[in-house]
Design a protein around this nucleic acid. Sequence first.
RNA 1: GGAGAGGUGGCAGAGUGGUCGAAUGCACCGCACUCGAAAUGCGGCGUGGGGGCAACUCCACCGGGGGUUCGAAUCCCUCCCUCUCCGCCA
Length: 439
Amino acid sequence: MLDINWIRANAAAVDTALAHRKNVPFSASELIALDDARKAVTTRLEEAQAARNAFSKQIGQAKAQKDEARASELLAQVAHLKDVIQQGEDERRAADEKLRQALLIMPNLPKDDVPAGADEADNVEYYGPNGNAATAAKSRPAKPSFSFKPKEHFETGEALGMMDFEAAAKISGARFTVLKSGLARMERALGQFMIDLHTTEHGYTEVQPPLLVRDEPLFGTNQLPKFEEDLFFVQRGDGRLGLIPTAEVPLTNLVRESIQREEDLPLRFTALTPCFRSEAGSAGRDTRGMLRQHQFNKVELVSITTPEQSADEHERMLASAESVLRKLGLHYRVMTLSTSDMGFGAQKTYDIEVWLPGQDTYREISSCSVCGDFQARRMDARYRDKDGKVRHVHTLNGSALAVGRTLISVIENYQQEDGSIAVPEALQPYMGGLKVISK
RNA sequence: GGAGAGGUGGCAGAGUGGUCGAAUGCACCGCACUCGAAAUGCGGCGUGGGGGCAACUCCACCGGGGGUUCGAAUCCCUCCCUCUCCGCCA
């Protein structure tokens, strides 16, 4: 959530920063007008409250002195203020709510170094903080070459009898997959491998969070109120609980409504969890295979930092995510998302796109975002700095990686002409030394 | 599911209608003492918002929301959460 006081002081900068964002509901001046209205109502109310408090104090003193005549005289004078205050409170509540609702659907401001763009074609390839195309290419796994026409993951998976979309449809409908045998095991191995990597080599703390969450955390990480239709909910009494669309929700909200100590930052959390997305509005997109599912596993990284740390932490997080692909020997590229393609709460986002030879294209497998204090303000997550001042933390989140999509890329990149799949070396210890998945 | 207890400042914990934004302790910061530190003493120490150059001042906040009252941390309603006992259960 944007800070209205900051908007007041930087109105022009807000409009400039949001010029290339999609779906910006309000201009700075519209928000300021809402705030002006709120302030006017507040001032009127507070004047009435101050008058009432003064009377009440005198009444208390009169009663203490047993001066009942004086007390009832004062009572008569204060009587009319009751309605004024009641009405003022109603008006202020309405004005507060109007401003809050407006701010809740305002997207975050992109950082200055985010490329301005109209769509995903304006995303810019990123080669690291000091990198260029050549050094980046040299340091990353090469694109594999095939002596035959590589198949898509579902062709290979179905031929092996280890990927069953018909069975999944009978049980759950479209956008679900049943994995069996070697592929089920490899999916599990991938998740274990990733989370071990992040906990042992990158300093993340493993977390097993709840998968069902209340509305408040979903507001905190921006899923609500704008993206409610993307979520699944289960009933709970008269209320509901949301199924997490990403572990970002519970991991980031670990620090909601708290004050952290500066020396404890950055906090780094990781979790391997199922994720649930209704994929409303993506009907017809990626309907073949297991690329876009209602349920998938993902290893998520979340960092909680000071404002000074967040930019470096973003690079570090990207590197942690990249390391998974490097160890698995999967070719990829990194894109800096343009202003129009970034998520609602992000200040800046790197997408990692893995090479899928069966599709002959790069597909998103990770997205690492720095959110600044946008989520922290929604969650009221703060820390106490060296001077004892309480400030909002910065939050970052990234996938490292989406496990289902990693399985897809292993299948497509490690497929062999006979329809079997080689097991990447890094994964073999997690699969009892198995080197090949075949019929 | 049944019965009960409780949610107060960074933490612990008083406070049951009127100078309570809230005692006290711990933690923290400053000063004194000390060669230095500990101990001790003195002082400071919540958040958000309005007004003022400033000193300062006003408003709100004691789990959330609503109500009673001139006045609510304190009384009433409701929701959320935590704990204890019983039952059930992977």
